[in-house]
């Protein structure tokens, strides 16, 4: 077994945990946290591939930096939305956000 496979497996598992959280948690802030877990999982994969694969030329690591930056932006905006929404609806429960019900 190659080293890269272990790291990728770690990333996959963390990703699935994050995804599960996103799907099931009712508190929207926890959903945001789980999203961060998924992003971290992807970053692990990128850095690992960049570290072990010849020809990656460090681009994976660089991408992880971009992702971290964008994650920061995403969290800022996302939580701003959550707070704005909370102000109107007095709730952070995802299943109460259903104005777009068909």
């Amino acid at each position: 077994m190659n080293a890269l496979y272990w790291w990728l497996t770690l990333a996959v598992l963390l990703f699935c945990i994050g995804a599960f959280g996103v799907l099931v948690r009712r508190n929207v802030i926890v959903v945001v946290m789980c999203l961060e877990l998924m992003l971290n999982a992807v970053n692990i994969a990128l850095v690992a591939i960049s570290n072990f694969r010849a020809g990656a030329l460090g681009a994976g690591t660089l991408f992880s930096l971009f992702i971290i930056t964008l994650a920061a932006a995403e969290v800022t905006v996302g939580l701003a939305i959550v707070i704005a929404n909370y102000r109107n609806r007095r709730t952070v429960q995802t299943d109460q956000y259903d104005e777009l019900k068909g």
């Binding site: 995804a19 996103v22 799907l23 099931v24 959903v31 995802t94 299943d95 956000y97 259903d98 104005e99 777009l100 019900k101 068909g102």
Partner: peptide, 18 residues
């Protein structure tokens, strides 16, 4: 018939995506 699919809940949609 398809209307109920549009629950308006983000996590239902996320489920489909996943």
């Amino acid at each position: 018939r398809l209307r109920p699919l549009q629950t308006g809940r983000v996590q239902n949609y996320a489920f489909s995506i996943f």
